[in-house]
Amino acid sequence: MREKLIVLVGPTAVGKTKLSIELAKHLNGEIINGDAFQIYRGMDIGTAKVSSEEANGVPHHLIDIRNPGDNYSAADYQRDARQTIHEIAGRGKLPILVGGTGFYVKAAVYDYHFPSGGSNPAYRADLEELAQSEGAEALHTRLRAVDPVSAARIHPNNLVRVIRALEVFHETGRRFSEQEYEKKLTPLFETVFIGLTMNRDLLYQRIDSRIDQMVDQGLLQEVCSLYSQGLRDAQALQAIGYKEFFPYFENQCTLEQAVDQLKRNSRHYAKRQFTWFKGQMNVHWFDMGEALNHFSQTAVEVIRYIEEQFSFY
């Protein structure tokens, strides 16, 4: 029998952390982080990493497993997440994968194989140098010219995947998108997909409010500490919540402008997250707007739905 797995997805600030902990407590579960940047140590405030008080004794996995100067790929996450799912299920617990990094979640849960071949370290280094000199958009423009499907799916700031797509095309003559989506993917586990949504205006208000709280909690100091370690160009520091402060440190904008840019980027990211999950996974959606005042009732509805799907008795 395949292991049972809950996947809880949705845009930033929609309430995934609180609900996932409630699900874990009621369903004898343990939580697996599905956010690409919560894996890094020292990136706590900007990634909204769960605190020990919030966790309330519920085990969380794949958090703080790398230093911010380390590289960590979707393939690495696929390996680690699947191993963690097997370990949790082997202890008789229910794995609950929670996150907003859609490609990481997809790679872990589905029968997904990364494109093979097309490795050229010298060409990759040339692309990285071009990105530094001309900016990420220059590479994304190249990708749009040779593989518009991949360009539409990969954000310009996701340099790792943009470079990989260009490298594969350069070496194999095949589009990255053709290798990625040439077959229908199926979940490896007996999976229930839960999605959380919310009225857009309300969600944007929550995002703005949360960022203000992050700043009050010391976000600027957290980013400055990492920046001062010479990590400006590290993969980890490309996360939303960190890179927006670089112009401020370099006297190119005011702190207020940096915070406003962070809010805009976070709102745009939330929109992309919702669109991605809606199009990529068979998700059953729950509106969290009502849950702001009736959280317990919403949690009960989600738990009931999961029990029905798994035929728990």
Rank of each mutant, 00 (worst) to 15 (best):
A81I: 02
V109G: 08
N67Q: 14
F103D: 02
R91F: 09
V109A: 01
I85M: 01
E87Q: 15
D70C: 00
Y77Q: 12
Y110S: 01
F103V: 02
D111L: 00
G92H: 11
S51I: 09
D35V: 08
G92T: 14
S116V: 14
R82L: 07
G99W: 05
E87C: 12
G34Q: 04
A36Q: 03
H86G: 10
N33W: 00
G90Y: 06
D76P: 10
E30V: 06
K25A: 05
R82C: 08
H60M: 04
Y110E: 11
R41K: 15
K25S: 05
G29W: 03
H26F: 09
F114C: 08
Y112K: 05
V58L: 02
D80S: 08
M43A: 02
A24V: 07
P115S: 09
I65D: 06
H61M: 11
F103L: 13
A48L: 12
K93N: 13
H113F: 11
D111E: 13
P68Q: 04
I39R: 04
Y112L: 11
N28A: 09
L23E: 07
R79S: 15
Y40E: 03
L62E: 07
N28F: 05
A74M: 03
I85G: 00
A75W: 13
Y40F: 14
N67W: 14
I45R: 07
A108L: 02
H113T: 13
E53M: 07
H61Y: 15
A81N: 08
H86R: 15
L62C: 08
G102R: 00
E53W: 11
L94T: 06
N33C: 12
L94A: 06
I63S: 07
G29D: 02
K93C: 13
D64W: 10
G42R: 01
K93Y: 12
I45N: 05
D80A: 09
K25V: 08
T84F: 00
F103W: 05
D80N: 11
R91I: 03
I88D: 08
I21N: 07
E87W: 09
N33R: 07
S52V: 13
P59I: 08
G34S: 04
K106T: 14
I32Y: 00
G102T: 02
N71H: 15
A24L: 11
P95H: 05
I32T: 06
G102H: 01
L97Q: 01
V105R: 00
P59M: 06
Y77E: 03
G46V: 09
R66C: 13
I96T: 04
V98F: 05
N56Y: 11
M43R: 00
A36G: 01
H113N: 14
A89T: 05
V105C: 00
T84Y: 04
I65F: 12
G99C: 08
F37H: 09
G99D: 06
A48Y: 10
Y72A: 11
I96F: 01
K106M: 13
G57S: 07
T47R: 00
G46Q: 02
K25N: 06
P115I: 05
D44K: 14
V50M: 13
I39Q: 01
A74E: 06
I32M: 06
N56A: 15
G42F: 01
K93H: 13
